[in-house]
Amino acid sequence: MTEAPKTADLGAVIDELEKVVAEKPNNVMARHHLGLVYRQVGRIDEAIAQLEKAIELDNQSMESMINLGAIFFDRGDTDRALELNRQALAISPDMAEAHVNIGLIRQHRGEVDQAIECYSRAVQIDPKLLTAWINLTSAYTMVEEDDKAVDAARQAVTLEPDSAMARNNLAVALYFKGAYQESWKNMDKARELGYSVDSRFVDALKAKLS
């Protein structure tokens, strides 16, 4: 997903992008980035308007579709989010990020088996996509596929050893597999990396180790 410009003065970035859009209304990338920055500062309706305009100007603008879908997902409009990610996939069927996003929507709706299919497709396309492995771990855990959950979690940690979420997911997956010592080690690493581990999980793990 394209990120908004990294700067402490987002107001200046907005001013500059608004100037570009005013002077060149058909500049798709300017509208796209303006939408991202508007989202970053919480001007959501304006973000939607800019991203929608970017798509109107360029119906192949997959990044705008993906980012607009993320906004609608955050708003709870999973139908619109799903539609936008499907639009992106219609343009590029091997867009791994869109498969992950559709999986997340499916998982959010309780359609976990379908979510697993989406995440699995994403890692086939891009084996190094960390979010796909992290979400796949969570989905496998939900359906009590503990061995597969651990395997997916290990892939995530291998890709990014300092990912706090990957470490926490591995800890949870190992817990359900009964590997409590290794679970504690990874849970502790997740906390060290800044993850806010659920206190109920910590207590449950302590009980197993006592």
Rank of each mutant, 00 (worst) to 15 (best):
S120V: 00
A54G: 05
Q114C: 05
L51W: 01
I71F: 02
R80V: 02
N101A: 13
I71L: 11
D45S: 10
Q124K: 09
F72C: 12
I105L: 13
G35I: 06
L51P: 01
G76R: 11
Q124Y: 09
L57Y: 09
A90M: 14
E97D: 06
D74F: 15
A30N: 04
Q107V: 07
V37R: 03
S92N: 12
D58H: 05
M65Y: 01
R80K: 15
L36G: 03
G35R: 01
I71A: 06
Y38G: 10
L68V: 08
I125W: 10
Q124F: 09
Q107P: 02
G42D: 10
A70Q: 00
A49G: 06
D94G: 12
L36C: 08
F72R: 14
S64R: 07
R31T: 04
Q60M: 06
I55F: 10
N101V: 08
A70H: 01
L104C: 08
A90H: 11
L57V: 03
D94N: 12
A30K: 02
A122M: 02
A88T: 02
E56I: 10
T78Q: 06
R106G: 03
A49L: 06
R86C: 13
E83W: 14
I55H: 09
A47R: 00
P93N: 05
A122L: 01
C118R: 00
S92E: 15
N67D: 10
G103H: 04
V41C: 07
E111T: 02
R121I: 07
V123S: 05
Y119L: 07
R121V: 13
G103K: 02
L82W: 14
D58W: 10
A90P: 00
H108F: 14
Q114E: 04
E117K: 07
E111Y: 08
V41T: 09
D94S: 12
L51I: 06
R109F: 12
I66P: 03
A54F: 08
I91S: 12
R109K: 15
M29P: 07
R121A: 15
L82V: 05
D77N: 11
Q50P: 00
I48Q: 03
R121Y: 13
G69R: 03
L36S: 08
E117P: 00
H32D: 11
Q87M: 13
R86D: 13
N67Q: 04
G42R: 04
G35S: 02
G42C: 05
H33V: 14
A88M: 04
D45I: 05
L57Q: 04
I91H: 11
R43V: 00
I102F: 10
A90W: 13
D58F: 07
R31E: 12
L82Y: 11
L34P: 00
I102L: 12
I102R: 03
K53V: 03
R109C: 04
I91R: 15
M95C: 14
T78G: 04
A30D: 07
H32T: 06
A98Q: 01
Q60E: 05
E56G: 12
E52Y: 11
A122D: 00
Q40S: 09
